[in-house]
Amino acid sequence: MSDRCSAGYDRIARHYERIEKLRFGNTLQRARLSSIPSLANANSSPHVLVLGDGDGRLLEAFLKYCPTAHVTSVDASPKMIEQQRNRIPALPQHDVTWIRSPIESFVFPTSTFDIVITAFFLDCFDASQLSKLLPRIADALKPQSIWYVVDFCEPEQGPRRMWAKFWLAIMHTFFRWQTGLRSRRIVDPRPQLRDLGFEPQSEQTFHFDMIYAAVYQRQSERQRP
């Protein structure tokens, strides 16, 4: 993400939760947290990569379920990272490393993490950007790792699809105006995740099928077709 993008998220950081709730109430947060208990129970002391968590509400909830996790949180916005830091000290113990970096220049360590969390993050990228980014994230994950995706999507057909396309277009226009994001429409990352060897373990939908929360697990090489 560019300096303009980082500056844009800095501007809206204080208002991010308020903007979200004006349109969606608590739905986005319910989606974020829908599979957090199962993720936390999957490994007693996992190494976790959190990308673009924004104001840190997901990270805060995850650490309450799994306080022994070793977390690396990467965000391009210094103001968002500041908000994350302000949430975490209230917890009794934590091991969190914050990294301020645009995702394009972040150097992913190889085969390091048990879990990666991308909540309302992948929708910031267009198809070309995602085709480069997703393999980089995958390379940072261990065998049998878990990828937790929470994001917007377009229902397959009917009035819900038209309704979702309308609101998603408005949202993309707003964030392009504020942050200069290239993305103009939702690109579904799920087919590429399958191609990278991640199989869906569970999926829930919210808000008239406009939002989904999916847990993927990486197959071992011998399990792959």
Score class of each variant (00 low, 15 high):
Gly180Glu: 07
Ala61Met: 08
Leu133Thr: 04
Trp163Gln: 10
Ile12Leu: 10
Glu104Lys: 11
Arg194Ile: 14
Ser2Trp: 00
Ala69Val: 07
Arg100Ala: 01
Ile146Leu: 15
Gly25Gln: 03
Lys142Gly: 01
Asn43His: 15
Lys21Leu: 08
Thr110Phe: 06
Ala138Gly: 09
Glu104Ala: 13
Arg18Ile: 08
Ala42Gly: 12
Ser73Lys: 01
Trp163Phe: 10
Leu49His: 10
His172Glu: 03
Asn43Asp: 09
Pro135Lys: 07
Ile146Phe: 05
Arg100Leu: 00
Ser220Asp: 08
Ala119Gln: 03
Pro225Ile: 01
Trp163Ile: 06
Arg30Tyr: 00
Asp10Gln: 02
Lys165Thr: 07
Ile170Phe: 12
Gly56Pro: 07
Phe166Tyr: 13
Ile115Tyr: 12
Phe125Pro: 11
Asp114Arg: 05
Ser34Asp: 11
Ile99His: 09
Gln192Tyr: 04
Arg185Ser: 13
His15Glu: 15
Ser183Thr: 12
Ala119Ile: 00
Gln144Tyr: 07
Val215Leu: 13
Pro89Asp: 01
Asn86Leu: 11
Arg218His: 13
Leu122Asp: 04
Phe62Ser: 09
Ala31Val: 06
Ser44Gly: 02
Ala42Ile: 06
Pro135Ile: 09
Leu134Thr: 10
Pro102Glu: 10
Gly158Asp: 11
Gln144Cys: 08
Pro46Trp: 02
His94Gly: 02
Lys64His: 04
Gln29Tyr: 14
Gly180Asp: 08
Arg182Gln: 05
Trp147Ala: 03
Val187Thr: 10
Thr72Asp: 04
Ile170Cys: 11
Val116Ser: 09
Thr97Arg: 06
Ser2Cys: 02
Glu20Leu: 14
Tyr16Val: 05
